[in-house]
Design a protein around this nucleic acid. Structure first.
Ligand SMILES: Nc1ccn([C@H]2C[C@H](O)[C@@H](COP(=O)(O)OP(=O)(O)OP(=O)(O)O)O2)c(=O)n1
Length: 852
DNA sequence: TCACATTCCTAC
DNA sequence: TAAGGTAGGAATGTGA
């Protein structure tokens, strides 16, 4: 009945009252996570330092409910939250645990938990901020010789080994658990293995995760990985299942090939070959010792990555800026961050966020992509770019749920012309003089954090640190852009439109008053006790799989084998599929490669999103993109109208391309320095035509510039100096895509280098030919190749006939076909061949003897 | 063969 | 609030 009442009332909640029927009311903030609710109300952000003032709390000396060192009872309103500034920015000395396991695989077969025992588990414990781990622990099955600097504990039975590790984890009670692919391999393996051994099975299945709990996963007030107190690590199976369950068969097969982490450090990735594992295990205590040493090294790598990539530092900043717990950053999406900030801002202003039913709606138009004037430009092309376009639009025009006027509301409220604006899409918003929107204020905060991050990036010279800081800066940018995206979220958890009506001001005010009454009437403190204050850092337990971090933030490419085999599987008949799988297995066996592929995760995601196609009508969005469309068009016109021969410039400017918030201009000058100077001048001048904080910036010069089509181009990028290029930049082309075999990406990159850096169009084409003939020598079936014509045409633009001849020969000799596709790379259909195998070996190949 | 849809990944 | 947004190229699938 209750549910029906809710249904009938739409977004409101019906309450049945005897004699009064079922009056219903709009509900507000009834759908907020408990953790977020508490943190917002108490003004606590993620990774916040909290103080329990002396006398306001009591410690529980016994009968603790958790594994924490300290348990205290304190009135929530007595907890003092220290905003993360100054000394309170410090990072707590978190305990980080990194581990790795080794299994006894059978020859050529990847270990299966049903059959193959876990033979070693190595763990490292580190207190954040200290240079060295405080603990190195090797747990082994069967005796193992001592290892200098590590504790070794050996067991005769596997059950004892697993139990010992389980106890160890509970004792060390880590804040952060890390490892390499622990989420998809080590942890599931340990759990399956434990289940298989019937050890602790009862514990596992009688824990929180009954089948019902599994179904109700999203309803759980406390996600399993986040509860710092009650959830032992091993109970994280649900989330693991969630991912593993969606691996494609191919990905499953291929995931034993462990890719080398990005070029961070040549010796980052230790490779332990299956065969060695089993041999060493079956040997004596000395060989098992060697295995344990590798295992310890494997456990050390994630710790080093964690530190070098500043994973915790950056995540903490994000948690503090957006207000969500650290763990949310790994397990949740962008929406929760926006909601957290929105709730905080709303509370500050005495507003409540309504519960809004998700509605369907039409698509809305996005950004403009200027029709490219395709070609090879052997002159400098200047790129101008609005900084943080959508966020600055929302700020400049005060776009927010709370500032949107319903049609006719302006007159009704007696607003004068200068109190509101009309957007390009015809919607009306009040100006800041009437009321400042929540979203613009959130954005100010996010953008100022990004500005700080960018300033730090600018000072940094170390390449790795630059990469890391750039990632940090980009993450903040995405969070800001997500504020825009959030307002149009299709599976929108907050089409918060209803807040947005100006005529509702008084109503919202009353509700806010009601809530503050509730808040103030909270019970009185009845505790007295400790004289000393306790200061704690607010961090739940977090699982940080470094492979996931690399995949997510550093575009680690794990497709090498997978991309090829995957596509093959898709298009071949069954018997062919079988032989390919066999090939793969041969490869695995021959070279003992291991890797993990996680593409399937994203497949799953995309598929799921598609299923429920729901749209919400968000005028807000349309206004944002509408302004954006207007602005890129206006920018183009401004540039092309000012920089003309008539106005005394040496040539007339032409915008040859532009996407969303950028314009690529040919000013008709021949030097990069001139192009830069004109770019800076034009950016300043154009900025003057838009309200603050909207700013057009000079970003870079391309010279030369190869414009192939919308979202596909390449060029030499100049930005720091006019005399030498910073690097070759490549957008959208096969060179930067992960859905081709590496051969393709490498070929395209190499050809582009010849074209753009060597300025040798014939070389570009002949390089492609060389690669192809290599393939031919390796007996590759030509009919499997698709060669397109893009580079050839680019070369033709540059060199005329000769390139044309190249194209002819390419076409005659090698090309196959493709409907009207103009050009040239090999895609997908390249067969796995010696070349590929060599590449694999180079990439994953056995480490030299010195590594052993 | 053609026109249009779907899939994947990328640029904003 | 489980899950930010649209535009778009290239290959491939589908159905007439
Ligand atoms: N992941 C993204 C990237 C972009 N955009 C939208 C909002 C951006 O404002 C606009 C332009 O994208 P840019 O990549 O140019 O990024 P910004 O203009 O936001 O930042 P900046 O140019 O300062 O790096 O496109 C988006 O919604 N989501």
């Amino acid at each position: 009945m209750w549910a029906e009442g809710l249904q009938a009332a739409g977004m409101g909640a019906g309450v049945r009252v005897a004699g009064l029927g079922t009056p219903s009311f709009a509900s507000y903030e009834a759908n907020v996570d408990f953790e977020i609710r508490f943190m917002v109300d108490a003004d606590i952000v993620g990774c916040n330092w909290l103080e329990l003032p002396a006398g306001k709390y009591v410690l529980r000396p016994e009968g603790k409910a958790t594994l924490c060192q300290l348990e205290a009872d304190v009135l929530w309103s007595d907890v003092v939250s220290h905003p993360p500034e100054g000394q309170w920015q410090r990072i707590a000395p978190l305990r980080v645990l990194s581990f790795d396991i080794e299994c006894a695989g059978r020859k050529g077969i990847f270990p299966e938990p049903e059959r193959d025992p876990v033979i070693q588990i190595c763990s490292l414990g580190l207190r954040w901020g200290e240079p060295e781990p405080f603990l190195r622990l090797a747990l082994t099955l069967r005796p193992c010789a001592p290892i200098l600097g590590a504790q070794v504990q050996s067991y005769e039975r596997e059950e004892e080994l697993l139990q010992a590790w389980s106890t160890f984890i509970r004792t060390i009670d880590p804040d952060v658990i890390t490892g390499y692919n622990i989420q998809n391999f080590d942890l599931p393996y340990l759990i399956s293995r434990a289940q298989h051994l019937k050890k602790s099975v009862e514990k596992i299945s009688s824990g929180h995760f009954s089948p019902t709990a599994r179904d109700a996963r999203w309803l759980r007030p406390t996600p399993p990985s986040l509860d710092p107190q009650t959830e032992p690590l091993i109970f994280q199976q649900l989330e693991i299942d969630h991912y593993v369950g969606h691996f494609s068969p191919t990905a499953r097969d291929a995931r034993w090939l462990r890719p080398t982490p990005p070029s961070l450090d040549p010796q980052t990735e230790p490779l332990i070959f299956q065969q060695l594992e089993i041999d060493h295990y079956n040997g004596n205590d000395q060989t098992r010792r060697r295995l344990a040493v590798y295992c310890l090294k494997d456990a050390f790598l994630p710790l080093r990555l964690l530190e070098r990539l500043m994973v915790l530092v950056n995540a903490m900043e994000m948690a503090r800026v957006t207000g969500v717990p650290l763990g949310y950053l790994l397990t949740r999406g962008q929406q929760v961050k926006v909601v957290s900030q929105l709730l905080r801002q709303a509370m500050r202003e005495g507003l409540l966020m309504p519960v809004v039913k998700t509605e369907g709606g039409e698509d809305y138009t996005g950004a403009t992509v200027i029709e490219p004037l395709k070609g090879y430009y052997d002159v400098p092309i200047t790129t101008l770019d609005f900084s943080s376009l959508y966020p600055s639009i929302m700020m400049a025009h005060n776009l927010c749920y709370t500032t949107l006027l319903r049609p006719g509301a302006a007159q009704k409220l007696g607003l004068t012309e200068d109190q509101f604006i009309k957007t390009p899409t015809g919607d009306e918003f009040v100006k800041t003089s009437v009321r400042k929107g929540l979203l613009p204020q959130i954005l100010e905060n996010l953008l100022s954090a990004r500005k700080r991050a960018k300033a730090e990036l600018a000072k940094e010279t170390d390449p790795l640190r630059r990469q890391v800081l750039d990632g940090r800066q980009l993450a903040l940018k995405v969070s800001a852009n997500s504020v825009y995206g959030f307002t149009g979220a299709q599976v929108g958890k907050l089409p918060c439109l209803e807040i947005s009506q100006v005529q509702d001001f008084p109503f919202l005010g009353r509700v806010a008053g009601l809530r503050s009454t509730i808040r103030d009437s909270s019970f009185q403190s009845k505790q007295t006790g400790r004289r000393d204050s306790k200061v704690v850092s607010m961090v739940g337990r977090v699982q940080m799989d470094m492979l996931q971090v690399l995949l997510r933030e550093y575009k680690l490419r794990s497709y090498t084998l997978n991309a090829v085999s995957f596509h093959f599987l898709g298009e071949q008949k069954e018997d062919v599929q079988h032989s390919i799988i066999t090939d793969l297995q041969v490869l695995l066996r021959e070279y003992k490669l291991r890797s993990y592929t996680l593409n399937a995760v994203s497949f799953h995601f995309l598929g799921e999103q598609k299923e429920d196609v729901q749209h919400s009508i968000i005028t807000d969005l349309q206004s944002v993109t509408g302004f954006g469309r207007q602005m890129i068009e206006k920018t183009k016109q401004l540039v092309e109208s000012k920089y003309t021969v008539e106005n005394g410039y040496s040539a007339s400017a032409k915008v040859v391309y532009g996407d969303t918030d950028s314009v690529m201009c040919r000013f008709g000058v021949s030097s990069v320095a001139e192009a830069m100077a004109l770019g800076r001048e034009a950016a300043d001048w154009v900025s003057g035509h838009f309200p603050s904080p909207i700013r057009l910036e000079f970003e870079k010069v391309y010279f030369p510039y190869l414009l192939i089509s919308k979202k596909r181009y390449a060029g030499l990028l100049f930005s720091s100096r006019p005399d030498t290029h910073d690097r070759m930049d490549c957008k959208g082309l096969e060179a930067v895509r992960r859905d081709n075999c590496p051969l393709v990406a490498n070929l395209v990159t190499a050809s582009l280098r010849r074209l753009l850096i060597d300025r040798d169009p014939e070389g570009a084409v002949s390089h492609a030919q060389d690669v192809i003939s290599d393939l031919l020598c390796n007996r590759i079936d030509i009919s499997q190749l698709v060669i397109t014509k893009e580079l050839t045409r680019a070369a033709a633009d540059y060199a005329g006939k000769q390139a044309h001849r190249c194209q002819g020969s390419l076409h005659e000799d090698v090309i196959c076909t493709s409907r009207d596709c103009p050009i040239f790379y090999m895609r997908k259909k390249v067969r796995k061949d010696l070349e590929d195998q060599e590449q694999l070996l180079r990439r994953f190949g056995p480490p030299g003897p010195e590594a052993w």
